[in-house]
Design a protein around this nucleic acid. Structure first.
Lengths: 341, 341
DNA sequence: ATCGTGGCTGAAACCCGTTACATCGCAGGC
DNA sequence: GCCTGCGATGTAACGGGTTTCAGCCACGAT
């Protein structure tokens, strides 16, 4: 592998001139530039980005730390980020932390000297340790997490408003015994969605003690919840799952148990994953533009890289929109078999 | 940001000793190590990976260059890669090339000095330019592409065998007018699948001029093909789409046009995306373990990083397995309405 | 007492670029 | 003809680590 010194030697000039010629500085004669470029080409010289970033104090790389690299959420998020990053000639350094706080801290630290900025989606675990390793070292934008203690801009989804809107939709459709399958207890999104569900049900249906089933955001979890519902003695006529994946599992299990959706019970989800449109009945859900989440975060980060000082007040909250499909078809009083259970 | 010199000064030792103490070299007294570690902790010292990789000639980073960062294929592939990479403490530097050959070349070059090895999935465009920039500079494993001219190990899917097996399955089920919706003409996978289809049909059904419809691997493409089929005058009783996404589009369109699958016509796909199990009828398809593709490639690359000299002869071909589901349900002679068209 | 040995330690070179600063030559102004 | 100023070029420092090599010291052996 040839270095810039090799190029300089081959061209019979100093390394400084070689560097200037190759980087398009103006104070270089055309003849000199020509000579250097020719030498570089012949030696197949490619600058060593690592060395370059050492002096430039710029790596042209953005770190992306996520809880896991899995599924639709991940791919859409990265797509959104890359769309903007690529446009600015930035690379993406990916890291996951497998949920562990220790891994998270080391992942953040391992980024030092590799990146110019960080997009960080914290795990649901305790955030305390993060504060120490995130203290203004590198420009950072948080994804899907908000913490007043960390005065960082963040890009989030308004889970509360989304769950509220969905619950209200179900109430307005005439459903009376609406059950919520929630996500993991420590999950930020899950908690907010549960809160939205609770508030909407209290404010629009006057219910104070709705039925809540535990869930884990997996298809199996949705099936399990449906199982409990059908076997249980509590009646229900609608299920609002905290995400689409569980809703899909729930529908599958309900139908396996002989119930028809939405005829016997409505089911709705959250996220609008591609699958939502493809199952039968099509799933009513809250549409979240995950790619936009990534793009927005990246745009904020670009501003920070440009020197702007952004803080939590610049945070961006995107409100998901209600997509009504077949799975919550208007409850027809004539055909409805009444509340199950 | 404190450097190792700051740490050395604080501990009252030389940088060399500080470096040795922090990197766990054996020739350091416990007292010295203690002093240095304490100083590092107090100064919140984190080594600068960029600088470190300059001397070590090792970046602990793997470059991953893909045609695009999109969809299930991408996320599964990255998951498989990360699974192995993470285990070895390697980071992932992601790059896409948007199909352009120029971008590809510059993406590969931009990796110089940033990575220890490369996982590369070439675009379908001409490979010629790549040879020059891939010439043994860095250990490389090719994904899903094989080229005798590039003597590199590659990890591929046996598209030919998969398509052959699927076609044979359809023939054995009794279907007689089997149509293939193929992928983009320049796509390597698509061409191989088409070839497998052709050969199987010739060898097992004696057909030499099967009906081939153009496609583009998108849902819309599948719908369009179904549209042509239904409107066209050529009869068909089974459709083998070159990927699941098109198969899904095809089924949707067929049903929209009043045909039932598999009653009126069978439909099968290729890839076994998660959606395949969720649509009605469930899709018969060839299961491809995309995550394993990534893991296998990463394992090969690890061996190369370990000093082994691998070449094309070490390539790994994974044969997809046939997953029979409802969409190609055995053609029941009694109920079948005969060939449509 | 002397010499050799071995283990720690520190100074300095090195990795590969970029850039501040010094130098040089040349043209123009007086 | 001499000085000034400017633009092109070269030298060397620098960025932040790692590593080689030499020096130092204490210890054991002769």
């Amino acid at each position: 592998m040839s270095t810039i010194r090799d190029v300089a030697r081959a061209a019979g000039v100093s390394v400084a001139s070689a560097s200037r010629a190759l980087n398009g500085h103006s104070n270089v004669t055309p003849a000199m530039r020509e000579r250097v470029q020719r030498a570089a080409q012949e030696l197949r010289y490619v600058p060593h980005s690592g060395a370059r970033s050492l002096t430039r104090r710029k790596t042209d790389t953005i770190g992306v730390i996520l809880p896991d690299l899995f599924g639709e959420f991940f791919s859409e998020l990265v797509r959104g980020i890359d769309l903007i990053a690529h446009r600015s000639g930035l690379h993406l350094l990916l890291s996951n932390m497998r949920g562990s706080a220790y891994e998270t801290a080391s992942a953040v630290q391992a980024m030092r000297g590799r990146i110019d900025g960080l997009l960080f989606m914290p795990p649901n675990a305790n955030i305390e340790e993060l504060k120490t390793c995130l203290d203004g070292v590198t420009p950072t934008v948080l994804l899907n997490y908000q913490d007043p203690a960390l005065n960082l801009p963040c890009v989030t989804i308004d889970n509360y408003a989304g769950a509220y809107a969905m619950t209200r939709h179900l109430v307005e459709q005439g459903y009376q015994k609406i059950v919520h399958i929630c996500g993991p207890a420590h999950n930020f999104d899950a908690r907010e969605r549960l809160r939205g569900f609770r508030d909407a049900l209290r404010e629009h249906a006057g219910q104070r003690n709705p039925m809540i089933l535990p869930g884990d955001f997996t298809e199996e979890g949705g099936k399990h919840a449906a199982d409990m519902l059908v076997s249980g003695k509590t009646g229900f006529d609608a299920v609002f799952a905290a995400n689409d994946v569980m809703a899909v599992g729930c529908i599958a299990e309900l139908e396996a148990r002989g119930l028809r959706v939405p005829h016997d019970a409505a089911v709705s989800g959250f996220d609008d994953i591609p699958l939502a449109r493809h199952i039968t009945p099509q799933l009513t859900t809250m549409q979240v533009h995950i790619d936009r989440l990534g793009s927005t975060a990246m745009l904020l980060l670009l501003r920070m890289l440009g020197g702007e000082e952004l803080d939590a007040s610049q945070s961006n909250v995107s409100v998901p929109s209600l997509i009504v499909r077949g799975s919550t078809g208007r409850r027809d009083a004539a055909k409805a078999p009444g509340i199950i259970g």
